[in-house]
Simulated assay, not measured.
Amino acid sequence: MASSSLAFSALPLHFPSSKLLPPSKPVKFEPTLHPIKASVSEKLSIAPPVPPYLPAATVVLTEPKKLPIRKIPGDYELPLIGPWKDRQDYFYNQGKDEFFRSRIKKFHSTIFRTNMPPGPPISFNSKIIVLLDGKSFPVLFDTDKVEKKDLFTGTFMPSTELTGGYRVLSYLDPSEPSHAKLKKIMFFLLSSRRDQVIPEFQNCYTEMFENLEGELATKGKASFGQANDQAAFNFLARSLYGCKPG
């Protein structure tokens, strides 16, 4: 326990009186101060000073748990019937979102096999493997595991008669010799014509809307789809090749 003592001299007390007293000598007040004394009966344990920094924590890396390889669930059902049924569910019975959501619940997996529209007779092969999570999606960029030949727009590829008998860059797999050459040409065109892309986009689509307004004023109606296709073709030709298609 700690004890302390503090003492001051007493102050004179004055009481009111009806009689006037003769003035007395002024009392000089000199307080007497005594130093504060303290005693400690128990020794205090003082903790050592905290270092200005903490030592680096040791991180122990554990190996990822190896899970067994599971067969991809789902099936394609009977030929013609399976693709037709899945197409009906995708477009009419369930809709796009419920089509995938219901199969995730059914197979307990975000990766499964199914048929993707349009299917036969428009597309001969409708069999696909669906990837619906961020962890599995990057596998699509691994050319050693996924072949991208003729698969730019799903399982459907348009006839090469539309492209002069040639398979365009979008349908070439990176392993094919022509893929790297055509890709190099495309990047060269984008680099050399980069200053013309925005101006030509504005010019082509300004012309399109002016023509549409002119048709509406004279005929009362106009076809946007055909005009938009022509404007897109004009934009590509002008921006990349610097020429206006005839």
Score class of each variant (00 low, 15 high):
I185G: 06
V197N: 00
P158N: 09
E213M: 13
K219M: 07
Y171F: 15
E176S: 10
L189T: 07
R194V: 14
L216G: 05
M208W: 06
G165D: 01
F209I: 09
K184Q: 14
C204Q: 00
G214N: 13
Y171E: 08
P158D: 02
L169H: 04
T160I: 10
P158Y: 04
T218L: 13
F209C: 03
A222Q: 04
R194D: 02
E210K: 06
S175R: 11
A222N: 04
P158R: 02
A217Q: 10
F187Y: 14
K184M: 10
Y171Q: 08
L216W: 10
A180T: 14
S223W: 05
S159G: 14
D173W: 05
H179P: 04
K221I: 10
L189K: 10
T155H: 08
T160N: 09
N203I: 00
L169Y: 01
L212A: 07
T160Q: 08
E215Q: 13
L190C: 15
F187K: 14
L182P: 00
I185D: 02
S170I: 07
E161G: 03
E161T: 11
C204L: 01
S223M: 09
G220L: 11
M208P: 00
Q196A: 10
L182T: 02
V168G: 08
Y205L: 02
T206Y: 02
V168P: 03
L189M: 04
L172A: 02
V168A: 13
A222R: 01
M157V: 03
K181E: 09
P199K: 05
